[in-house]
Design a protein around this nucleic acid. Structure first.
Length: 570
RNA sequence: UACCCUAUGGUGUAAUUGGCAACACAUCUGAUUUUGGUUCAGACAUUCUAGGUUCAAGUCCUAGUAGGGUAGCCA
């Protein structure tokens, strides 16, 4: 422990931390006095499940608030009752908590419906909004196109008095759904289409998950979002790039209302290779049964990653690693996989499991004898201790760890060769037994009693170490070997006549029965372990007392596999 | 083809705001290793193009090029 202030690194010594463009914008606004604090929010619409892309936004908003000693709210942007449900509200809250964040205040945009309504009347009185009788199709026609200006609505010049009366009529249910809208009076010729008299209210008779049937008119996103930010005292309203063109409207509403004016800042949303993050795609996969639901371990939803076994830390670290910018980039999925490997390497206890067993008999082992060997739980963590595992003359090893004839660089077991059994002995392979079809049914070896792990003074060295389980002690478990859902780098890119479904990986899930060391039969749902030399696994909720189910979270790095694929094994 | 945004190794993000292009991941090479894991060392760039300003440009100016976004009464 340090008892001297001199041990504290000076400013000059500490490495310069680069700050992303949003941090720099905040620095500037704080310095100039535009704002005197940092108040952010995460504003999901409760119409679906959160995915890895949301995690980036959540991490950003909460991290900024924390960095500057500010506040971060959770606000559900629930202005469209036809799409939103309480079920999603709860799922979203669960996911955010699982990620490890705690919001300062919980709000709903629907809490502000009364206030928003009053502000709408204010804009009407100011002559900044009007009731329009055009239907949806007519409105579209009048709006013009990307290259042509729009035309004024024939109802654009109604008096404030008439507008007020009509607007109250809208509220009171005097008109049919879609018959009228309230629109902001801005500029039908604006090159920014969002400024061509955007709709503020639509008539919609739908049961709202919170306000029930109190309203038959609902505010649109643009008319709701900025003012909700304003009411909550948000200073930095951080959103994704597609809202860049909405910022002038965001600003216009705040200015016309003369209310606290947050600064909207846009960043590029997350795009990951081999992944399809998007409500349409994900919905289709769930609806068509291409996956097992929103929390299928192959899904890029947070609930999917949770069930797959990803740790919240690994997702947070990943989000911090990839940075924040305005460039539309694609992050290599390997970064995410490495992130969970990195975390689990430090914390996951090691266990032995054989997924594709072949019998191995030790011919010189005393018949029926069983010994227990000590095995280190985690070489990365001395505090993880060790465990006892039973060893006998009949074992299972991984079928791919044996070759009758092997290339030069195959360091595992081969006929006439030797290998070390992890937490066991060095064994020498004498012979193999085959069935009529030529398949290997048994491998015959002798063990070298002088080479017991931890007590080996023999001086013998072998190139390889393999894992094993004792046949009579092993427990049977189900193992779900998950792999990437899509084979394509960008599954959204398709040839003529194809869809993303054509890019599905037929081998994204393989289920096998495996033998594991006895202790794992008692593993609890949610326990994460490393199966030595194979990967990281988590006990799934489908486990029963009789049979545990393990999901593969991610494999270990497989240098040998790469060498083999490239033919570099000789 | 209207408006807005973006462009730095294979990928992503930096560059003290005009001063030797840095970090991470990936890839390759080697070392260590009782997990082919982990760890360690090394290799890997005409800053989209063309002009210009300047002692000095990734950064400033001009003109291009390429990519993304926007025409819901979705968010």
């Amino acid at each position: 422990m340090s008892d001297s202030v001199h041990d504290k690194p000076s400013e000059a010594d500490s490495p310069k931390e680069s700050r992303h463009f949003i941090q720099q914008a905040i620095d500037a606004d704080l310095a100039s006095g535009r704002f005197d604090g940092v108040f952010t929010r995460f504003p999901p619409e409760p119409n679906g499940y959160l995915h890895i892309g949301h995690a980036k936004s959540i991490c950003l908003n909460f991290a900024l608030a924390e960095e500057f000693g500010g506040t971060c709210n959770l606000r559900f942007d629930d202005t469209n009752p036809t799409k939103e449900e309480t079920e999603y509200v709860n799922a979203i809250k669960d996911d955010i908590e699982w990620l490890g964040f705690k919001w300062d205040n919980l709000h709903f945009s629907s809490d502000y419906f009364d206030k928003l309504y009053a502000w709408a009347e204010k804009l009407i009185e100011q002559g900044d909004a009007y009731v329009c009788d055009l239907n949806a199709e007519e409105t579209r026609e009048y709006r013009g196109s990307l290259t042509e200006p729009g035309r004024d609505s024939p109802h654009r010049d109604r008096s404030p008095k008439e507008n007020l009366e009509l607007f109250r009529g809208m509220r009171d249910g005097k008109f049919a759904d879609g018959e009228k809208t309230l629109r902001a009076k801005i500029d039908m010729a604006s090159p920014n289409i969002n400024l061509r008299d955007p709709v503020m209210y639509r008539i919609l008779r739908a049961e709202h998950h919170r306000t029930g049937d109190k309203w038959c008119i609902y505010p649109t996103y643009d008319w709701t979002h900025g003012q909700s930010d304003s009411i909550e005292g948000i200073t930095f309203s951080i959103c994704t790039l597609e809202f860049e063109n909405h910022r002038p409207l965001y600003d216009w509403y705040c200015q016309k209302l003369g209310i606290h004016h947050p600064r909207q800042i846009e960043f590029a949303k997350l795009k990951l290779s081999t992944l399809l993050i998007g409500k349409r795609h994900m919905l289709r996969m769930v609806k068509e049964g291409l996956v097992d639901g929103w929390d299928d371990p192959r899904m890029p939803t947070l609930s999917g990653y949770r069930r797959r076994g990803y740790t919240p830390e690994s997702i947070r670290n990943f989000c911090a690693d990839i940075g924040v910018a305005k460039f539309n980039s694609t992050i290599d999925i390997i970064r995410l996989e490495n992130s969970v490997r990195d975390h689990l390497n430090k914390v996951a206890p090691r266990r032995m499991a054989v997924l594709d067993p072949v019998k191995l008999t030790i011919t010189n082992w005393p018949s029926g004898e069983v010994v227990t060997n000590e095995a280190v739980n985690n070489p990365e963590d001395p505090n993880a201790g060790s465990r006892e595992i039973p060893f006998s003359g009949e074992l299972y090893i991984e079928r791919e760890d044996f070759r009758e004839e092997a290339p030069r660089k195959f360091f595992r077991l081969k006929k006439g060769g030797a290998v070390r059994l992890r937490a066991g002995y060095i064994i020498d392979c004498q012979d193999v037994v085959k069935d009529d079809d030529g398949n290997i049914t048994e491998i015959l070896c002798t063990y070298d009693p002088e080479t017991k792990s931890g007590e080996d003074n023999s001086g013998r060295k072998v190139k390889g170490t393999i894992h094993w389980v004792s046949a009579q002690h092993a427990a049977e478990v189900e193992v779900r070997l998950y792999d990437r859902l899509f084979t394509a780098e960008d599954p959204s890119k398709c040839e003529e006549g194809q869809t993303f479904v054509d890019h599905l990986n037929p081998d994204s899930l393989k289920t096998v029965t495996a033998f594991v060391e006895p202790e794992l039969a008692k593993a609890k749902v949610g326990d994460r372990v490393q199966f030595e030399r194979l990967g990281y696994f988590i006990v799934d909720q489908d486990s029963t007392d009789d049979k545990r189910v393990f999901n593969r979270i991610v494999s270990l790095r497989d240098t040998w596999g790469k060498m083999e694929a490239k033919g570099k094994t000789t």
